[in-house]
């Protein structure tokens, strides 16, 4: 049986979505002449500013395209659903946002993305544009701490891109923006839970099975199996499992500050996300950790998957300033 979706043809989903996004947010975004899968900020690229290019597969909206705009990313390279973009749109993004100060690629740590963006970076180097890369690896569940660099990038992208985008907006050098991006990534921790699967527009079949009373802790945002499958628990118990892991990794002291993202994967209502946030904030308070800023909503989705993730970014003075800095994107604003 096929899943129900509001589509024309499944294979047109990504391009038709981009058409709709550009029609809604034409004041902020435009498509590159070089590639219709390269979405450029109207007010991002500037002379002397490091260009920030993000990107990845579609199906995670508002990630990545929604975070393009002044003060955050200058461009996003858009792939097919759950598939890395090829090198062409990534190269078009580089050409569009190069302000002479170099370009930083930031994207989640997935083999396909690495190969395609690396090829784009090699092509850019042939045009004498310096491109560096910082991979996001915030998914605590995807590998143990001793193999932290092999972890996946998930919803924590939101904070990591924000910090790097603000650093570029402050006109920091490429060295500095890269340093900030690595620092932000190292201090960002995400744990997810999935309650039901998602289905790709082209197949309209569930891409994994999960029993009616089951949940899976640590599942990836493409339905990659997680670390523990078990019976569905009450919200507070789910959040406790997530926060225990995050606290273990973060090693925050009493009086430290965090920024919090309670993120929906697509089909979980805000009601449930706020119920989760209630417990997240209680656990932070109990641990004596200050919650500096909180976002609750769909920031990094997995099509119609039900489930959520909690991200904590362990702030210091610099990251606090960068997270607080105003930005104006199609689907996200800080004023």
């Amino acid at each position: 049986m096929q899943t129900k979706k509001i589509l024309n043809a499944g294979e047109d989903a990504v391009d038709e979505m981009l058409d709709g996004i550009l029609l809604a947010h034409g004041d902020v975004l435009r498509a590159s002449d070089g590639s219709h899968r390269a979405i450029i900020s109207r007010d991002g690229p500037r002379d002397g500013k490091v260009g920030l290019v993000i990107g990845g597969g579609s199906g995670h909206e508002p990630t990545f395209v929604g975070f393009v705009g002044k003060g955050l990313a200058d461009a996003a390279a858009i792939g097919n659903v759950f598939a890395s973009p090829p090198p062409d749109p990534a190269l078009a993004c580089v050409q569009e946002v190069n302000g002479g100060a170099g370009v930083l690629f930031m994207y989640g740590n997935y083999a396909g993305d690495v190969m395609n963006f690396d090829m784009a970076a090699e092509m850019a180097a042939m045009e004498d544009i310096e491109v560096r890369t910082v991979l996001t690896t915030d998914d605590v569940a995807s590998a143990p701490p001793d193999r932290k660099d092999t972890r996946r990038g998930v919803a924590g992208n939101f904070f990591i891109f924000k910090a790097a985008g603000a650093a570029a907006d402050e006109m920091m050098t490429l060295d500095e923006v890269e340093r900030v991006a690595r620092h932000a990534n190292a201090r960002t921790y995400t744990m997810g839970v999935a309650l039901s699967p998602c289905s790709l527009p082209q197949t309209r079949r569930w891409n994994f099975g999960l029993g009616p009373d089951e949940m899976e802790i640590g599942m990836g945002i493409h339905g990659e199996p997680g670390i523990e499958r078990g019976p569905l628990k009450p919200a507070d118990a789910i959040v406790d499992e997530m926060m225990d892991r995050i606290f273990d990794e973060m090693q925050a002291a009493r009086g430290d500050r965090v920024a919090v993202l309670v993120n929906g994967l697509g089909a979980t209502p805000l009601m449930e996300l706020y119920i989760m946030n209630r417990r997240v904030q209680a656990r932070l308070q109990e641990a004596g950790i200050e919650s500096h800023a909180t976002w609750v909503g769909n920031y990094c989705t997995s099509l119609e998957m039900a489930g959520a993730s909690v991200t904590a970014m362990h702030l210091d003075d610099e990251l606090t300033r960068l997270i607080d800095r105003p930005c104006h994107c199609a689907m996200f604003r800080v004023v």
């Binding site: 097919n80 759950f82 790709l200 891409n207 339905g223 990659e224 199996p225």
Partner: peptide, 23 residues
Amino acid sequence: ERDALCALDGEIGDGDHGIGMAL
């Protein structure tokens, strides 16, 4: 083989292998 490859990929990956190959 698109759907069969996707089903195989769904067991240990992200379920889109057949789509990419057919495309």
